[in-house]
Design a protein around this nucleic acid. Structure first.
Lengths: 337, 337
DNA sequence: TTGAAAGCGGTACCAT
DNA sequence: ATGGTACCGCTTTCAA
């Protein structure tokens, strides 16, 4: 069985208080005693129970991370960044894939609370924003990442999605495109909405209108839905010459649709993705995409969360990072067929 | 502050024992009392502390998952499968990216123990296999996934890597290739070794020798290293007409190398990957690759782990799933230049 | 049925 | 410098 602090104390012939001292490196203990206790801990392969420590008011050193889907490369990258920063600070990470479903979000939120995580990083959207209320009331530190929750006083780390949308529009405009379309995630996803808003605004500035029927939202199966929606777009009479996709997965769907329809990318169709995941680098042509600084975002989210944990300040800083356009070969000037 | 069982008991005018009863749905309580208690729990937004419950001998309902890198699509998929199965059974998942580094493995192993996870699923290699000893001694349920640890009596779920290697060889042989090479992960990765062994054996059966200098191992940066090693291979006098890559990431590196050198895939070079991740579907040409049933593996690993948790049986079943060759367009008959 | 009380493995305060 | 001890929140006998 696992050795406890009592076992160590007994073997070392001291009180558990003494053992606790050396575990936490505080209090006063003679060097000899400390050494002896260390030796016994070693011999017994003693591992202090975080559970027990947490019960006495200390932390659990565990963080929760909610994302739509850990198998989506973008969130996998975010997760890795969060994990690394957390790990370097002594925290473990519980991942929760929500599929953007409120019921799953709620379930996970509750579970994480019951497990007394020290904080949660939320990178998933939810329809019912009231779900966070109880957490805030219980004063559980929360940080949003890559997603917003307006109206709630929560730490947030995002890239400027609006600017990202503008960047994409700017690029396409510069290439000479005027017949554009957009492929988005479910509209409940705040980042998609912002990207579209930015994209649209920039187009408007150039005097180009983006009618609602040229903005299609997909379901959960990003690639598949992206392909289906793109196919629909590309078969319309007024075929768009460029599609802005709210993430790389959708862009891949669009790419597949184009290929299936025998359209050349970028000659006959330009495609812009978002996130700059590894996927964007391996497609053919590789995707022009808007890049988010995932590593920095993950690190920042953890730092913000933990600083919130220390100080009582629930101050809600909103940290906005700038996206960058990564130009690759999926975009070009429209052909004048 | 968070409500405790005491708060509920007080508010409901009963003992904490009664409250505990209704939480766990056992014992005998009159319907009225139960209803009243439920009502109070609701009102106080009471969430029983898993921490406290765990301390009294119950489970933590948390599992640990060790993988080389959660941002590697293959492991992200595995993680998702494990998460889903665990979640449906009430367990949360702590992810641990080890980068195949023993120090990280050790650190995580220790951390997970201190946090009293109910079990660990290990999908990462380690040089020092003795590291698992203490866990086994502490009788912490362990299951290996997609990786082996021969000599240790541990539950294991893997695909038949040896067969996978043979599959790849078979395919290439059938196409008429005779000058082959292999790109592997670090050789400490058991699955890579097995794949190579299978590949080599099948070649041998066809009377083809695969000299050691045609088997190159990469480092951690899979794509980058894969590209570098592939470049090296492709610049040799006796250029291979086909490369078997031990995972899709390496295959992508090889693909990039080929493109950079102006070699046509599959006309001048055939490439076979492994894992059939989403990446294999988006490259150009899409990759012929050996597929692993990730979903089934994840589900199985969790089930095995939990069954181990219930019964005392530490019985080490070794479950071997069969891989499948997915033929796409990165392979073809060698040109006779 | 219901409640009192003894742990579970630590922490931290208070004497000694 | 050391040890005794009262919790932390919950589970689980064991009496009542």
């Amino acid at each position: 069985m696992k050795a406890t602090i009592y076992d160590v104390a007994r073997e070392a012939g001291v009180s558990i208080a003494a053992v606790s001292q050396v575990i936490n490196g505080k209090g006063k203990i003679s060097e000899e005693r400390r050494a002896e206790i260390m030796r016994v801990m070693e011999r017994l392969n003693y591992q202090p129970s975080v559970i027990a420590a947490a019960l006495t008011g200390k932390k659990t050193y565990t963080l929760g991370l909610l994302v739509p889907d850990i198998s989506n490369p973008f969130f996998a990258e975010i997760a890795r960044a969060v994990e690394d920063q957390g790990h370097s600070l002594g925290y473990s990470l519980v991942i929760c894939s929500t599929d953007n479903k409120d019921e799953r979000v709620e379930r996970y939120l509750s579970l994480l609370q019951q497990k007394s995580v020290d904080g949660m990083i939320i990178g998933t959207g939810m329809d019912n924003k009231e779900m966070l209320k109880p957490l805030l009331e219980n004063s559980i530190p929360i940080a949003m990442i890559a997603r917003e929750m307006p109206g709630h006083d929560v730490q947030t780390v995002i890239t400027d999605d609006f600017a990202g949308g503008r960047l994409a529009a700017e690029h396409l405009l510069g290439l000479g495109h005027t017949r554009l379309a957009v492929l988005a995630e479910q509209l409940k996803v705040s980042s998609s909405r912002e990207r579209i808003r930015g994209f649209r605004q920039r187009l408007a500035e150039a005097g180009i209108d983006l009618p609602d029927d040229r903005v299609l939202a997909s379901g959960d199966a990003l690639v598949k839905d992206g392909k289906r929606k793109a196919t629909e777009l590309l078969q319309r009479a007024e075929r768009p010459t460029a599609i802005f996709c709210c993430n790389d997965l959708l862009a891949i769907g669009a790419l597949q649709a184009a290929k299936e329809l025998g359209l050349l990318v970028p000659e006959q169709l330009s495609i812009v993705g978002f996130d700059n995941t590894i996927l964007a680098t391996v497609t053919e042509p590789p995707l022009t995409t808007v890049s988010q600084p995932t590593e920095e975002m993950g690190k920042l989210a953890v730092d913000l969360l933990l600083s919130q944990l220390k100080k009582e300040e629930g101050g809600s800083r909103r940290t906005v990072l700038q996206p960058e356009l990564v130009t690759r070969r999926s975009t070009a000037a429209p052909s004048n067929e």
